[in-house]
Design a protein around this nucleic acid. Structure first.
Length: 271
DNA sequence: CAAACTCCCTGTTAGC
DNA sequence: TGCTAACAGGGAGTTT
């Protein structure tokens, strides 16, 4: 499940291969992935466009496209099982290919998405899609002070708050658990009840975890659905394994309908 | 305002 | 062995 580090990895991997490339044609295999645009219109707008830039905002991939002097932006959200693959034009289509972009270098960019949760947007400005997102966790603008004020303004359980993309962009289930463990904060702690030092630790933990994961090219879920890098989670998916810090058994519980992993010793429910 | 549901999907897995 | 039901999960939308 691609979160910020995985999407960042995709951007960095694809950029050298795609920048400046021309899109010769687009095949829409499953129109349901297109948000607010018909397959016909989508195809027409993209044919002949060149890829000017590839960036990330939260968990969104942003393709800046240029065609006839006009710029448009294609945004992709991979959700659970979405992936982008570069294949030779001669290779056969894969089972769950939803979109296929034929490029002018003998390659195809394929949007493959087993569970059909992924969405693709075509807009004049990326902000039309990303406007509601919270700040980037790794950005300079998100100072400790700003983060503290954001957190104290809410009174919600801290883990669901971290997962809320309008609060903070890019953190998903894996890195929320990892960051809370690193900061020594229980997933159910109330945000308004966190002390200044705790919030400081939390922001540092989030940044450390995301940076580390980017360095390792993300986490491989191991389910064969989306394979990424070799970041090894400390607690996520480690139920019953010893906590790397104190050796007590990692526990799993459900918080906001999400599997949540934590150390009962390092992350106390009450401060 | 916060939290709990529901839905969208399909591959995997537990249970019979 | 072969079937079915439960489950996972990001996010939007709805209800409590």
């Amino acid at each position: 499940m691609p979160e910020l580090p995985e999407v960042e990895t995709i951007v960095r991997t694809l950029s050298p291969a795609l920048l400046g490339r021309n899109i010769l044609a687009v095949a829409v295999r499953w129109p349901g992935c297109l948000h607010g645009i018909s397959a016909r219109s989508f195809t027409q707008h993209l044919r002949g466009a060149s890829i000017a830039n590839i960036t990330r905002r939260g968990k969104f991939l942003q393709f800046a496209l240029s065609r006839k002097g006009r710029s448009r932006h294609m945004l992709l959200h991979l959700r659970m099982s979405g992936r982008l693959e570069l294949r030779r034009k001669t290779e056969p289509e894969a089972t769950h290919d939803r979109l296929i972009f034929k490029l002018n270098n003998g390659m195809c960019l394929c949007f493959n998405d087993t569970r059909k949760f992924g969405r693709v947007y075509l807009v004049s400005s990326p902000s039309e899609v990303t406007d509601s997102l919270g700040p980037e966790p790794l950005s300079r603008e998100l100072s400790e002070k700003v983060f503290f004020n954001m957190i104290r303004l809410k009174n919600a359980a801290i883990k669901p708050l971290l997962l809320n993309q309008t609060f903070l962009a890019g953190v998903g289930n894996i890195y929320a658990d990892e960051s809370l463990w690193r900061a020594g904060i229980h997933p159910l702690r109330r945000s308004a009840g966190l002390s200044r030092p705790e919030v400081r630790r939390l922001l540092r933990a989030i940044r450390f975890t995301l940076s580390q994961a980017i360095r390792f090219h993300g986490t491989d879920a191991g389910d064969g659905v989306v394979d990424f890098g070799r970041y090894k989670p400390m607690v996520y998916g480690q139920t019953d394994a010893p906590c790397p810090r104190c050796r007590k058994a990692i526990r799993r519980m459900v918080v906001a309908q999400r599997g949540t992993h934590y150390c009962p010793y390092c992350q106390k429910a009450r401060p």
